[in-house]
Nucleic acid binder design. Structure first.
Lengths: 114, 114
DNA sequence: TTCATAATTCGATATTTCTGGAATTATAAA
DNA sequence: TTTATAATTCCAGAAATATCGAATTATGAA
């Protein structure tokens, strides 16, 4: 996941998020924090059949945006903060180069309390 | 573009970027700065036929990530910094809520000179 | 073992997206 | 008006994604 061209990976990660259900799930897991959520609960909350959700979760996991961990019969999914961070960093790098003004604007608007 | 649910728009914007050629074009335009680039040049640089590129440019424009402006026979495309900023802000909002630690990390790593 | 539960993988269809040559539109020069 | 250039839109086939019931795997309890 790290030897390959980062842009190729970014396309994958963006594609994983470019879906109504998957984006909702990802946001759900990010706000759920480190404990994450159980597969079944995720499917239920998103109102999607388990088998469909399983595909979506696999897509997000392959893209390095979430992580799975089995605990007996349940599987916990949690956001992969490193992947998330990597994607955001990648997206921002170029603006900084090409349009530092706007980059500054973004930083101004983005505080954890705003 | 602003009355509709922002998550719906985000899915669209992410989808627009989730393509090797389109992501490359978008980055090209971001680094090109406010002058932007001409459609033909973009197609040439990306090694893609004009008609194919036209579709991709339209996709990015519909998603609010780039803007087009005709100047006689040429059409200039430039990055839409507002759209970009909106997308990044949207993606970050949740992490701040769910994982302020990581959010802080991202901010630390992201400076226009790093 | 046998049964029950949680989740995934299989398989087959439906839908969406991608691609690029041909035709068309927009603009300007001869 | 005629010709040329830049770009888009049309169209149709190819490729990739999405969906979800049924079958399967993994785990634990009776």
């Amino acid at each position: 996941m790290s030897a390959v061209n980062i842009q190729v990976w970014a396309v994958d990660a963006l594609g994983a998020l470019a879906h109504e259900t998957r984006l909702a799930v990802f946001r759900m897991l990010v706000t759920a924090g480190p404990d994450g959520m159980i597969a079944g609960t995720i499917a239920e909350q998103a109102k999607v059949p388990p088998s469909t959700m399983s595909h979506h979760l696999a897509t997000l996991e392959r893209a390095g945006l979430i992580q799975a961990e089995r605990e007996s019969r349940l599987i916990h999914y949690r956001a992969d903060y490193e992947g998330m961070s990597k994607l955001l960093t990648f997206l921002m790098k170029d603006c900084c180069q090409g349009a530092p003004d706007m980059c500054a604007d973004i930083f101004t608007n983005l505080t954890c309390n705003g």
